[in-house]
Design a protein around this nucleic acid. Sequence first.
DNA 1: GCAAAATGTCAAG
DNA 2: TTGACCTTTTGCA
Length: 264
Amino acid sequence: MPEGHTLHRLARSHRERFAGRVVRVSSPQGRFAAGAALVDGRLLDDVTAYGKHLFAWFGDRVVHGHLGLYGKFTSGVGAAPPPRGALRMRWETDDAWTDLRGATACEVLSPDEVELIVARLGPDPLVARPDGGPAFDRLHRSRVAVGALLMDQRVIAGIGNVYRAEVLYRQLLSPFRQGRDVTAAEWEPLWTDVVTAMRAGLRSGRIVTTRPEDRPRRSGRVRQEDAHYVYRREGLPCRRCGTPVSRQVMATRNLFWCRTCQAR
DNA sequence: GCAAAATGTCAAG
DNA sequence: TTGACCTTTTGCA
């Protein structure tokens, strides 16, 4: 589920429910038991996100979460339900709770260790005044395909497989172009579009990248099958030219693109 | 009702 | 490059 917009929404909702409160932290599954004990009963100062990483600041101890492919938070108000299954981490106050399951990372770090994580990431398009410069610096020195570079969190933090495919399509750019062959004139609208698309996802909570004029129904709620240009549309006609959408693994994930519109 | 795949990352070899 | 993580959804019987 999680690309960067999901994590920023999660940080916001956790901040609203839990920041400024004393939180009971536990690990019914046991795997995070030692970490939970380090922050249990502490005041939670803030919850922040950078790229796909989540940070919960309990004074000088920070719970770092990364959802990976399966990770999920489930939240509610009132008393928490009896723990079921592999429940890695639970937060509870007198009137709210949240459960974390299936995460790739759930650990307690020092603020310095948080700095190290953020330092190795590229710019996050969802911060207040995003600067794509460092991303272009990396990209335009690389012989790696732009479709792979966009997935690299050291280049841009928070992009995932859906935004990679959709943004390249919207820019009519071939995923196979080497990074160093992407000109500044091409990069500028690409980066702007990344910021635009991910901000829309942050607002709405879902990834809708198609423009209204490219959807069969132009009013009302966007149907899921109309939300994307190419992502998971292998074999279906390109909305622009009718060519069947292609699929191939790139950077360990299924890449979707239109070989006609994205020949450039 | 079950198998496979899914918006991700890292360690082992 | 492969397996592990170990949840939820989707697609096929």
